[in-house]
């Protein structure tokens, strides 16, 4: 007996809602992604304060120093102690002087870990002052509570 072959349609689910949702998720993450978090350092958890607001304009010639809980100071890709920090600062200051500016034009951003010893921060400030740096920004997390 000859069996009549039936043409079978492929069962396809409707992909439209899934694609809609996926695009919405992509749009959400694209809007919220922040590539400018280069200043953050995993070794540092900032203390918080209710008074600070995010700066409206970026700082001029920022030198970002991350002070970890154990007192190590991270500048650029290298880590220093308060005693050896001068080497890293000299490198930064050479760049600033190369642009025809003075150390007093630079801004030292101190991102100190909330549990690090205050003395370590004082030592860092002292080393910076020895390098003729005068403008300091003590970075803290904004407390919105």
């Amino acid at each position: 007996m000859r069996v009549k072959r039936q043409k079978v349609d492929m069962a396809e689910g409707d992909m439209t809602p899934m694609i809609d949702m996926t695009f919405q998720l992509i749009a959400f993450f694209m809007v919220l992604i922040n590539f400018a978090q280069t200043e953050a350092n995993d070794h540092v958890v900032l203390p918080n304060s209710k008074l600070v607001k995010p700066p409206e304009a970026p700082l001029v010639f920022p030198i970002v120093l991350h002070v970890a809980a154990d007192g190590r100071v991270y500048l650029g890709g290298d880590d220093y102690t308060a005693e050896t920090l001068r080497i890293g600062l000299d490198r930064e200051l050479a760049v600033i002087r190369g642009e025809g500016k003075k150390p007093a034009d630079a801004n030292v951003v101190i991102r100190g870990h909330k549990d690090c010893a205050a003395g370590e921060i004082q030592e860092v400030v002292r080393v910076c002052q020895d390098s003729q740096l005068v403008n300091f920004a003590l970075r803290v997390k904004e407390d919105r509570s």
Binding site: I19, T22, F23, L25, I26, F29, M30, L32, I33, N34, Q37, L46, S49, L51, V52, K53, P54, P55, L59, V109, V125, Q129, D130, Q132, V134, N135, F136, A137, L138, R139, V140, K141, E142, R144
Partner: peptide
């Protein structure tokens, strides 16, 4: 689209607002 989605999910970090106490401390 799924590759993009995975990329964004993996690189997503909630941004914490930071601010400065600006102090001028000459030697």
């Amino acid at each position: 689209v799924f590759l993009l989605l995975i990329f964004f999910v993996m690189t997503f970090k909630i941004v914490e607002m930071e601010g400065d106490f600006s102090v001028k401390m000459p030697l």
